[in-house]
Design a protein around this nucleic acid. Structure first.
Length: 673
DNA sequence: TCTTACCCAGTTTTT
DNA sequence: CTGGGTAAGA
């Protein structure tokens, strides 16, 4: 028996209601009981990192720390909620009062509270990446960019350059030199555009995602009083998924914990998969440099997976050029050999999946114990069609979001100008819908609205052409109605949807589906406390596209999970299928000529594999079907060399009778449609 | 001068 | 399926 000397806390260990020592292993226990000062918790996949955080929250609350003085920063809002829910379960409801969310959420909250100090009004609007790109587009069109021989970067590229320079804390020049050398000749213009873009946002009281971090950093850095006030409130700061934080977030972590210096960063450098967002897994190893007297605790025993799954995971990690000094081990059972399934084509792959899933369900598995993972959002389209056909309920994480679809953004824009009349991006969007109004007229109308009184009566503007006068009146009427309906989000939303339906029909061929989406949106909008919270939460935490459909159909069975690997971070399922494991997809074709990026793709595969508890299947089609034609494809270079002892090859064979049957069904389906 | 219709190209991952 | 570019039409 090892002895562990506890430093005295507010509460004597023997007085705790939870038996931490029995419920945790030694390393977990020491993390949970850690008293003061910075800690770096290096936790491999499935080693109980979440469990440790949950118990630490409970332990802190139980020992008398005011829950509102604990800050739990996580990668998604979902995971913060889940952790606090679990902490509440093992202790009590007090844990729900812990301050939790993403860096962006927390920063947003601080900025709203201290808006005055940064020269913003309290009602500033948060714009998402696509709004930001619209703004950049607008700014660019106002500059005169000479039509040189060389192409000027597109708005997407410009946004990436600007965002990357911020998240990696480098100059625009450095960013272009490192990542976009082809645009170095445009450096001056890009610099100018960037500063105009920054001005534009301040002028219109909007902030993009990066501003939330930058402006909070600046607020805390430049304002001693506020920093002391904020940091002294954060008695304990816990940061999850630290391997995916960037330089800016590391600095924020330091500032936020600068008073009490009780900070615990938790992560696994082998699972760092967000470098495209400026994250640097080396951040983790730099933590002890940034925080003096850091205690390092390692969690090494895996409780999640069978040994055979871990064998594959360990082998995968060897593919990386940069070695990790870790090998996952477990005392769990050996388990079944993972399967490597080669399907003839994508359709067969989907058939295999649906049939396996139905089999598992028959054997008593919950659908929600099964996950299908993939590299890109679109890799599941074929499967989704088949799941729909077979009536298997699923929810998909990652890929296109519901609230990012054009029709939803259109509707939201009408509500956003209500909250922030200076939001030029939304005005632009609204006005461009109207027949006869293009970019120029929209801009003129907006600048009129800014200088003169009431932007909500756009028909009063001068020089209005007959072509769109009545339409502008209708818009004005909509705003009056919205103001009357103040306080009821669903009614306001319904009014916009009614107004918008005519535009929807004109703009989209698939308007019936889109209108149905919008009606569902109206239905669920009652869950938001106010228009302000709805608009803000949707920007920071967009609704998943399938969440709305699942809500609509109200299936009583908990759904199957489809997810991009990125969105599957931190989660686990009994059975995991990784589909489309092809060279050019995983690793992505974009990563092939860069060693660092290839390493990240290895880590991505590693994350996917380590999500599985009991069963793992990696599948790929031999024939890749694209719009330009079909061609034979190779399995991912990372799995191609795995030996049969590690992963068992599966062969799909047709049951002739059954295949005839399914052909008949296919025919029936076609006749019915 | 401004709008719109049409065509073509390219499509990672997310707060 | 969407963005961007072009050319014709108002």
């Amino acid at each position: 028996m090892k002895k562990f000397v506890l430093s005295r806390d507010d509460l004597n260990p023997s007085d705790y209601s939870i038996e931490y020592e029995e419920l945790l292993n030694e390393a977990q226990y020491s993390a949970v009981m850690h008293d003061r000062g910075p800690v770096l918790l290096v936790a491999g996949a499935g080693t109980g990192k979440t469990r440790t955080l949950v118990y630490r929250v409970a332990r802190l609350v139980e020992s008398g720390v005011d829950p509102s003085q604990i800050l739990l920063l996580t990668f998604t809002r979902r995971s913060a909620h889940e952790m606090l829910r679990r902490a509440s379960q093992i202790l009590d409801e007090r844990c729900q009062r812990v301050e939790g969310g993403t860096f962006h959420h927390y920063c947003s909250k601080l900025l709203h509270l201290n808006a005055e100090s940064i020269g913003y009004p309290e009602n500033f609007t948060i714009i998402d990446a696509s709004d930001a790109m619209d703004a950049i587009h607008l700014v660019r069109s106002r500059m005169d960019i000479p039509k040189e021989q060389k192409r000027f970067p597109k708005k997407l590229t410009l946004y990436s350059i600007i965002s990357s320079s911020i998240n990696k804390q480098r100059s625009i020049r450095q960013t272009i030199e490192d990542e976009y050398p082809q645009f170095i000749s445009h450096l001056e213009k890009i610099d100018e555009l960037n500063s105009k873009y920054q001005d534009y946002k301040e002028l219109n009281y909007v902030m993009d995602f990066d501003d939330l971090l930058v402006k909070t950093r600046d607020l805390l850095l430049n304002n001693d009083e506020i920093r002391t006030q904020v940091a002294s409130k954060n008695r304990h700061v816990l940061v999850d998924e630290y391997q995916d934080t960037n330089a800016l977030q590391a600095e924020l972590t330091r500032l936020l914990s600068s008073y009490h210096k009780n900070v615990m960063a938790v992560g696994d450098d082998a699972q760092s998969i967000y470098s495209f967002r400026g994250a640097d897994h080396k951040n983790m190893m730099r933590f002890p440099e940034l925080f003096e007297n850091t205690k390092i605790i390692k969690l090494e025993e895996n409780y999640r997976s069978t040994q055979r799954i871990l064998d594959v995971a360990n082998r995968v990690l060897e593919e990386a050029q940069e070695k990790f000094d870790k090998k996952l081990y477990t005392n769990n059972e050996q388990g079944d050999l993972p399967g490597l399934v080669k399907a003839a084509n994508m359709n067969d792959q989907s058939r295999f999946l649906t049939q396996m899933i139905l089999n598992l369900r028959e054997q008593g598995s919950e659908l929600s114990d099964i996950a299908v993972l993939f590299r890109n959002g679109r890799d599941s389209f074929d499967l989704e069609v088949m799941l729909n056909k077979k009536d298997i309920p699923y929810i998909k994480y990652g890929g296109q979001k519901f609230t990012e679809a054009a029709h939803v953004k259109d509707v939201l824009a009408h509500l956003r100008v209500l909250l922030n009349p200076k939001d030029a991006i939304s005005w632009n969007r609204i006005l461009l819908l109207i027949d006869g109004i293009g970019p120029k007229t929209a801009e003129d109308l907006f600048s009129w609205a800014h200088q003169n009184g009431n932007p909500f009566r756009p028909e009063n503007a001068p020089n209005i052409s007959e072509r769109y006068l009545t339409q502008l009146k209708a818009l004005g009427d909509l705003f009056s109605k919205l103001k009357q309906l103040k306080g009821s989000v669903p009614e306001q939303l319904q009014a916009v949807v009614d107004y918008y339906s005519v535009f929807c029909k004109k703009r989209f061929d698939d308007h019936p589906k889109r209108m149905k989406d919008l009606e569902t949106f109206v239905d669920i909008s009652g869950t938001y406390r106010s228009l302000e919270t709805m608009v803000e939460e949707i920007a920071l935490d967009p609704i998943e596209a399938t969440a709305i459909e699942t809500e609509a159909s109200q299936k009583d069975e908990s759904p199957l999970i489809l997810s991009t690997i990125h969105s599957a971070k931190g989660l686990e399922w009994r059975t995991v299928f990784l589909i489309q494991c092809l060279d050019g997809i995983l690793p992505s074709g974009y990563a092939l000529d860069d060693e660092d990026q290839l390493d990240e793709e290895v880590r991505l595969l590693y994350v996917a594999v380590t999500r599985a508890k009991e069963q793992l299947f990696i599948t790929y089609p031999a024939l890749f079907q694209s719009r330009y034609g079909d061609y034979f494809s190779n399995p991912s270079r990372f799995i191609d060399e795995l030996s049969d002892e590690l992963i068992e090859p599966w062969l799909l064979v047709e049951d002739n009778e059954a295949s005839q049957q399914s052909q008949i069904e296919d025919k029936k389906d076609r006749l019915e449609n």
